[in-house]
Design a binder for these strands. Structure first.
Lengths: 222, 222
DNA sequence: CGAAGACGAGACGGAACCGTTCCGTCTCGA
DNA sequence: TCGAGACGGAACGGTTCCGTCTCGTCTTCG
C-alpha cells in the first residue's frame, strides 16, 4: 500500500546519528562544521555541513531539505533515514554544535574572566555562518516553541550558568559587591556584543573588547 | 490567456508613500461609511494591519500575500494595485511605522535622558507584535540587503543619531568626559535591553530600567 | 442616470517543496 | 561468494504560493 501519510509525527525521539560501522573508507568530503561536532558517518557529516550552509543562506523558514541533499551530494532518502523532519534535524544538529561551546576560563581575576568571556562571544559571532544562523534561529524560536526550547537548553542555559559562575567567583574574591545585580550583569555581558555583531553588523576596533571590558567592570561595581 | 509570468520584478519603485498614520499596528475596521471622504483609505489600512499581524505570526519568509489578503478581507488584486511585491510592501509599511518612533527627550540631565531612552526602547519591544517582527526582520535583513538598507535608514540611523545627541549633550554639560567611547556607549544603550526583551524573552523587574540606567552611567564614566 | 472604476472573490498556469517510493549500484560482513 | 542494506538519483501526488486575470457587485461622480 502506498503508505498511510503520517500527518505530523511530532518528534518522537532526537534520533541518533547512526550506530557507526567503523569501516567507512572511500569517500572523504572534508567539510567541517562551525563548531566541529563529533559525527561518525561521512555521509552524515556531509549532510550536516550542507545543512548549516543552507541554513545560513536561506534561513530556517526557507530551508529546503532537497537543497540540503543536493548540496551534500546525497539523496533525500539519506536525510529521512536519519531524521524525521526539518525540525528534528535542526534541533539535533544545532544542539550538537552548541554544546561544545565550552571553555571554563577561570583566569583568577574578574577582568580576565570578563575579557575571556567577551572574546569567546565575539569569536563565535564573527564566524560568518554563525552570524547569519543565530539571529535567524532566534527569530524562528519565537514562533516554534520546540525549537526555542531546544536552543535555550543547549545554548542559553550553558552560557548563562558560565556567566553566573564568573560573577560568583568575583563576589567570592571580593572584586564585586555581594548584591551585584546578576540579571542585568548577564544582559550587559551578552547584549552589547550581540547587538553590534549580530544585529547592526558593525565592525569592531582592535581594542574594542578591552574598552568594553573596562566599561562593564565599572557598571558591575555601580 | 495564461499571461506572461513576470519572473522577478526586482523592485522598480517604492510605490505609494502611504501617508496613513499606522502608529501601533492595531485593528482596522472593515469599511467606512460615506460620511467623510477626506479620510484615508480604509482598505489600505486594513491591508496594512493584516500585513503586520501575518508578519508577526508567520515571519517574513513564510509571509503569504494570500493570507494577508484573506485576513484583511480583501482580494489579492487590491494588494497588487498598491505594491509590486512582498519586499516592496514590507519596506514601505515598515518604514512608515518606524519613522514615527520619535521623541526628543531632552530632560536636562544625562540620567533623565538615558532613562527616557531606555523606557522608549522597552516600550517598543514590549509590544507583542513588535517583539516578534523585529528579530525576524533583522534576521531577514542579513540575507536581503535591500530590506536591511531600508530598515537601517528608517530605524537604526534615526535612533542612533538621537542616542548620539544624548551623549553629546551630556558631554557639553560636563556630565561625561569628552573622550567617552560613543561607539560602545551606543551598544550599551541598545544591546542589553534588546538582548533581554527580544532575544531571551525574559521579563523585567519593575525597577529594572532604573538599575540599568545607574549601571550604564557608571560604564559611560569609566 | 449611466459609465467608470475599485472592490471581494477566486480560478488559473507555473513553480517550488514535501515526504515517499522506486530504481540500479556499491560496499560491507558473514 | 553472496545477501543485506545504505547509497545517489529520479520520479510521484499533494500542497502552497505567486502574480495575472476574469467575474459580478457596489460607489461615485459627471
Amino acid at each position: 500500500m502506498p503508505s498511510a501519510p503520517t500527518p505530523q509525527p511530532s518528534l518522537p525521539e532526537p534520533s541518533l546519528p547512526e550506530p557507526a560501522t567503523a569501516g567507512a573508507p572511500g569517500r572523504a568530503p572534508g567539510r567541517r562544521l562551525p563548531g566541529g561536532p563529533v559525527l561518525q558517518d561521512s555521509v552524515t557529516e556531509a549532510i550536516a555541513a550542507a545543512f548549516f550552509e543552507e541554513l545560513a543562506a536561506a534561513g530556517y523558514a526557507r530551508l529546503s531539505l532537497e537543497a540540503v541533499a543536493k548540496r551534500a551530494g546525497a539523496g533525500k532518502a539519506a536525510i529521512y533515514r536519519r531524521w524525521t523532519s526539518k525540525l528534528d534535524m535542526t534541533v539535533d544538529l544545532v544542539s550538537a554544535v552548541a554544546v561544545n561551546a565550552s571553555g571554563a576560563a577561570d583566569t583568577g581575576t574578574l577582568r580576565g574572566d570578563v575579557l575571556a568571556f567577551l572574546t569567546e562571544v565575539a569569536d563565535a559571532l564573527n564566524e560568518p555562518l554563525a552570524a547569519r544562523i543565530i539571529p535567524d534561529l532566534i527569530a524562528e524560536g519565537g514562533r516554534t516553541p520546540e525549537l526555542a526550547e531546544a536552543l535555550f537548553a543547549a545554548v542559553r542555559d550553558t552560557r548563562r550558568s558560565r556567566a553566573t559562575q564568573l560573577l560568583e567567583r568575583a563576589v567570592a574574591r571580593g572584586e564585586l559587591p555581594a548584591d551585584v545585580d546578576r540579571e542585568i550583569a548577564l544582559d550587559l555581558l551578552a547584549g552589547p556584543l550581540y547587538w553590534r555583531l549580530a544585529v547592526v553588523h558593525t565592525p569592531t576596533a582592535p581594542d574594542h573588547l578591552d574598552r568594553l571590558t573596562d566599561m562593564l567592570l565599572a557598571a558591575f561595581r555601580a
